[in-house]
């Protein structure tokens, strides 16, 4: 779900941009130059993941995987996902220019929140426990994104309230799918390369 230019009211657009810039700055500060290659490659990986379509009943959804991005990137998810959204807007025409801040905030904000909430359990737990927590995190990230998009729309005008409800309804199946995928992905990673969840973006503090 990309918010486009012209849909949101000015205070929402400006507020979103300010918060996104803050998040990106925080993410870059936690990213020493030596970690830039890792973050760049993971940013590219999540860009590729967003091109993947997964069937849901008669239709299909494209993946967002912001929960998983948060789990491996921490605060660095902000600049990494911002870069992905920027490239999508410039080269694919998805999203918008003035809406870029809001779009970054609604995708990367939940990523960082999920990392703060379940990151520790995923890092320390057994493969099975980590998978369960990652599943919860993956679903939660989409839920938070949907709520944030709906909230931004609702804040922008009375007329959008119905659309905001529709956004949440549409994201319910996506939530389930992303949760299951995140759980399976983390299950595999915990068995193959558990050190992947060592913080790249620095510790929480």
């Amino acid at each position: 779900m990309h918010i486009v230019d012209g849909a949101l009211s000015n205070p929402v657009v400006i507020g979103g941009a300010v918060l996104a810039v803050g998040g990106i700055a925080r993410g870059l500060r936690s990213l020493p130059m030596e970690k830039i290659p890792v973050a760049g490659v993971l940013s590219a990986m999540f860009f590729v993941a967003s091109l993947v379509h997964v069937p849901v009943g008669p239709t299909s959804v494209h993946l967002i995987m912001n929960g998983l991005a948060g789990l491996v990137l921490g605060w660095a998810a902000f600049p990494a996902l911002f870069v992905g959204l920027l490239l999508q807007a410039v080269f694919f025409g998805f999203g918008g220019v003035t809406a870029l801040g809001v779009n970054t905030l609604v995708i990367a904000g939940p990523a960082v929140l999920v990392w703060a909430l379940v990151g520790g359990q995923v890092r320390r737990g057994s493969a099975r426990d980590a998978a369960i927590w990652a599943g919860i995190g993956g679903a939660l990230a989409i839920a938070l994104t949907a709520i944030a998009v709906a909230g931004m729309l609702a804040l922008s005008g009375e007329g959008f309230v119905l659309a905001a409800k529709a956004v949440i309804a549409v994201h319910l199946p996506v939530m389930v799918v992303e949760g299951l995928l995140a759980a399976a992905a983390v299950h595999l990673v915990k068995k193959v390369k558990p050190e992947l969840f060592a913080p790249i973006g620095g510790a929480l503090a």
Partner: peptide, 27 residues
């Protein structure tokens, strides 16, 4: 690809594998 647990688990493993390979590549 279809709708169901097997498909989602397979896609999840695919993503996990992609993550592992990306990480090793970046190293």
């Amino acid at each position: 690809p279809s709708t169901g647990w097997h498909c989602y688990r397979s896609f999840g493993y695919l993503l996990g594998m992609l993550l592992v390979r990306s990480m090793e590549r970046s190293e």
